[in-house]
Design a protein around this nucleic acid. Structure first.
Length: 413
RNA sequence: GCGAGUAUAGCUCAGUUGGCAGAGCGUCAGAUUGUGGCUCUGAAUGUCACGGGUUCGAGCCCCGUUACUCGCCCCA
C-alpha cells in the first residue's frame, strides 16, 4: 500500500465540508473589512524566500521543499509571494493602500507534531502601503473578529513592538552584554542562541533562562519616539474596540522581516504548537525585494490549528445538506425512467439521489434512510403502467399520490 | 537533527501466566411477494506493522527495522 507523505492530511468529505465552512466564513469577514483575495503560484523562485524570509531563519535554512536544482521552492509562507506580486504588478499604482487576503496551502519540511504539518493551510491578510497605526488596528481587528465570530474566547492576544532596525541593533547589543554575565548559567540551547539569535533567548521555556531574562533590558526602552507613539496608538485603538491584549516585551518572532509591531494569538486548547495566529509589521520587506520603500503589516492564521481549537471548543459545524428525494426503482424499465426524472429534478435545483448498484427496494430504502432523504418515491412496473406514484415523507411516513410526470413539480419541504 | 510512546477487523479498542483471533460500531443478507428508522437472526472482513530470536507452542517474552503519534527546536 502506498501511504500519503509524512505530515500531510487527507480531507475526507466530512473534513472537507468543515474546511469549506471555515473558508466561507473567513472570506465573508475579509470582504466586510474590504480585504481582496490574492492567489499566487504554488511555487516560487527559491531566491524570493532567501531574500524575503532571511537566509538564517529555520524556514530557509532547513525547511524548504526545493526542486529543479534548487531553482524553485514550494511556498513555505505567503508574505514574500504577495509582496513579489505587489511589486511585479505595480499594485501601488492601482491604489496607495492594498488590503489583501489569501487562503492557501504552505509547505515546510519539519518534524510533524500536533498542530504542525508539512503541508498546511493558512488564512492570511496583508495591508501594504500604510505605516499608520490605523493599519495595524484594522488588520489586528480583522484577526480578532473572525476568531470571535467563531465563538472563540479564552484566546490570548500578545503584542509587542520590536523597533526598527537601528533600535533593535542597539537593543540586541545591550541584551548580549547583559547575557554575557550569565553565559555559564544559560541553558545549552540559549548559550548557542547568544551567538546566533539572542532575541530568541527571551522566550526560552527553560526555567533558569526565564529567571535570567527577568532582569534583562526591555526592548520598549530602546524605541524611539515614533515607534513609542505608534505602539501607544495601536494599543489605544485596540482598547477603543474592546479588544483585550497583553503586552509581551519578550514576544519576538522568528522571521527576519519583522519590524515594529508584532503580535500573536495563542490558545490553551492546543498542545505545544499553541499559536493560532501570528504576524507583525514588515516595513523593510518591499524595499528588500526590489520595490519602493513601502510600509506593510500582515498576519497568518493556521487553519489546521484553528480547526483543532474549534473542535476543542465543541464548535457546531453546519451539517451537509440531505437529498430532498430519493428515487427508488424496481425493474429495468423503471430504472431508465428514474434516470430521466432524477436529471430533471437536478436541473430544477432539487437535490436528488438514486441507486447505482441495482439494489433491492429494501436496500434502496435503507440507502435513502441513511442519506436522510426527505422523501422517497418508488417507481416500478405498476407506476409506469398507471402513471401515478406515491411520494413518501420519510419523517412521518405519510404518502402523497401524484402523477409520474409531475414529480418535478412536487412541493418538497 | 534529538527524545519518548504506540502498532490486533473499515473505525474505536479488549486480548489473563505464552495455549484455537475477540467485542462494540459500521457493512451485507434475512425475519410477508414492492417500502427505511427500532428489534431479532445470520454473514463477510485479519500477513496480530515488518524481519529475526527464545519456546513443544508467541498477538503476548527478547533483538532489530519501519510507520505513526507526542515532545524538543522553530513556526501557523
Amino acid at each position: 500500500m502506498i501511504s500519503k507523505p509524512k505530515g500531510t492530511l487527507d480531507f475526507l468529505p466530512a473534513d472537507a465540508f468543515k474546511r469549506l465552512h471555515i473558508e466561507d466564513k473567513l472570506r465573508r469577514i475579509a470582504s466586510l473589512f474590504n480585504y481582496k483575495e490574492i492567489r499566487t503560484p504554488a511555487f516560487e523562485k527559491t531566491e524570493l524566500f532567501r531574500r524575503g524570509i532571511g537566509e538564517e531563519t529555520d524556514i530557509v535554512s532547513k525547511e524548504m521543499y526545493s526542486f529543479n536544482d534548487n531553482e524553485f521552492t514550494l511556498k513555505p509562507e505567503m508574505t514574500a509571494p504577495v509582496i513579489r506580486a505587489y511589486i511585479e504588478n505595480s499594485l501601488y499604482n492601482v491604489s496607495p493602500v492594498q488590503k489583501l487576503y489569501y487562503i492557501s496551502n504552505m509547505f515546510r519540511h519539519e518534524r510533524p507534531q500536533a498542530g504542525r504539518y508539512r503541508e498546511f493551510s493558512q488564512f492570511g491578510a496583508e495591508v501594504i502601503g500604510s505605516g499608520d497605526y490605523a493599519a495595524d488596528v484594522d488588520l489586528i481587528s480583522l484577526g480578532t473578529s473572525f476568531l470571535s465570530d467563531f465563538g472563540l474566547k479564552n484566546l490570548k492576544i500578545k503584542i509587542n513592538n520590536i523597533g526598527n532596525l537601528d533600535e533593535r541593533r542597539t537593543y540586541i547589543a545591550d541584551l548580549k552584554k547583559y547575557l554575557e554575565d550569565y553565559k555559564n548559567h544559560l541553558s545549552s540551547e540559549s548559550h548557542k542562541r547568544l551567538f546566533t539569535n539572542p532575541l530568541r533567548i527571551l522566550d526560552s521555556k527553560d526555567g533558569k533562562d526565564i529567571e535570567i531574562v527577568k532582569n534583562a533590558p526591555v526592548i520598549f526602552d530602546y524605541l524611539g519616539p515614533d515607534n513609542k507613539s505608534h505602539f501607544g496608538n495601536v494599543l489605544k485603538g485596540l482598547e477603543s474596540m474592546g479588544i483585550q491584549y497583553e503586552i509581551d516585551y519578550k514576544l519576538v518572532r522568528g522571521l527576519d522581516y519583522y519590524t515594529s509591531t508584532t503580535f500573536e494569538i495563542a490558545s490553551d486548547d492546543l498542545g505545544a504548537q499553541n499559536a493560532v495566529l501570528g504576524g507583525g509589521r514588515y516595513d523593510m520587506l518591499v524595499q528588500q525585494l526590489g520595490g519602493k520603500a513601502t510600509p506593510a503589516i500582515g498576519f497568518a492564521c493556521g487553519l489546521e490549528r484553528l480547526t483543532l481549537v474549534l473542535e476543542a471548543n465543541k464548535y457546531e459545524f453546519p451539517e451537509p445538506g440531505n437529498p430532498k428525494i430519493y428515487l427508488v426503482s424496481a425493474g429495468e424499465e423503471a430504472k431508465k425512467k428514474v434516470i430521466v426524472i432524477a436529471n430533471e429534478l437536478r436541473m430544477k435545483g432539487i437535490f436528488c439521489e438514486t441507486d447505482l448498484l441495482n439494489r433491492s427496494i429494501k436496500a434502496q430504502m435503507k440507502d435513502a434512510n441513511r442519506l436522510n432523504a426527505g422523501y422517497v418515491c418508488v417507481i416500478g412496473d405498476d407506476e409506469l403502467r398507471s402513471g401515478a406514484v406515491k411520494i413518501k415523507n420519510m419523517a412521518g411516513g405519510d404518502e402523497t399520490e401524484i402523477a409520474l410526470d409531475n414529480i418535478v413539480n412536487f412541493n418538497f419541504i
